[in-house]
């Protein structure tokens, strides 16, 4: 028997990464059902916590894990494309509300940037962190490339995106319930603007229409932010 060799396989094989990710997700979904869909039992949040526990317990490094993790993450591209299908299903609502939607998305893009940088500035965070905060509200690939372009730290930007996405996914339903905002389109657009893909995954569980509009808002907010941030960034220098 060679237990050391077995441990090396467990830590470094891409298969382990794929398997552990799937298992963490499966357990998170079961837990979420057990909690009757309570917002705090969000599958991304619980799944990430389970995965981190495994990585720390086995001493697996981030790079080793990602050999397998990347295979799951790669499906994000086709999944984003797939959002076109439910969006098309809402074509007539989309057409009727085109004007208000366009205005809201541009406004939301601005709020996403200004609120993060503004609060960070009030709390006296260093400049490079402020620059990395500008892209908090958009999907990771856009956040990283825009952040890099203006002198932020791309990895830090990615972290901000993920953490606020999880927070947004957890908070959105209680928050909107409290305020009596019940329209699926409003729910979807606001979530896509503030919590990008992780929020989109969340509202998909609530309604397909909300998920479709979240996907639209996420994509277009990416464009708005990618255009606005480089224009506004010089104000921070």
């Amino acid at each position: 028997m060679n237990l050391d060799a077995a441990m090396v396989v467990i830590r470094t094989s891409p298969l382990t990464g794929v398997f552990v990710t799937l298992l963490a997700y499966k357990l998170a979904v079961l837990f979420n059902r057990r909690c009757k869909g309570h917002p705090l039992s969000n599958p991304v949040l619980i799944g990430v916590l389970l995965l981190l526990t495994w990585l720390l317990a086995t001493g697996t490094g981030y790079r080793d894990y990602m050999k397998g993790g990347i295979m799951v993450q790669m499906l994000l591209g086709p999944a984003t494309v797939a959002l076109a299908v439910p969006l098309y299903g809402n074509l007539s609502r989309l057409k009727r509300a085109a004007g208000p939607l366009a205005m809201t998305i541009v406004f939301g893009g601005l709020v996403g940037i200004v609120s993060a940088v503004g609060v960070g500035w009030l709390l006296q965070l260093p400049q490079q962190v402020l620059l990395s905060l500008t892209t908090r509200a958009v999907t990771t690939p856009i956040a990283m490339s825009v952040s890099q372009g203006i002198g932020g730290i791309p990895e830090l930007s990615a972290m901000f995106v993920i953490l606020s996405g999880i927070f947004g996914a957890v908070i959105v339903k209680p928050l909107f319930g409290l305020l009596g905002l019940r329209d699926d389109m409003v729910l979807g657009i606001a979530t896509g603007l503030s919590a990008h893909g992780i929020g989109t995954a969340r509202v998909f569980q609530l309604s397909e229409t909300a998920g479709a509009f979240a996907g639209l808002a996420m994509g277009l907010n990416g464009v708005v932010t990618a255009i606005l941030v480089p224009l506004l960034a010089p104000l921070l220098h």
């Binding site: 963490a24 979904v29 990430v48 999944a79 990771t140 995954a201």
Partner: peptide, 23 residues
């Protein structure tokens, strides 16, 4: 297939969360 695929959208964000470990 798309509705079935998108019902598991949450799965695809889990690897990104592991980056917390690195940073």
């Amino acid at each position: 297939n798309v509705p079935r695929f998108l019902s598991h959208l949450s799965l695809l964000f889990i690897p990104a969360g592991a980056a917390v470990l690195a940073y």
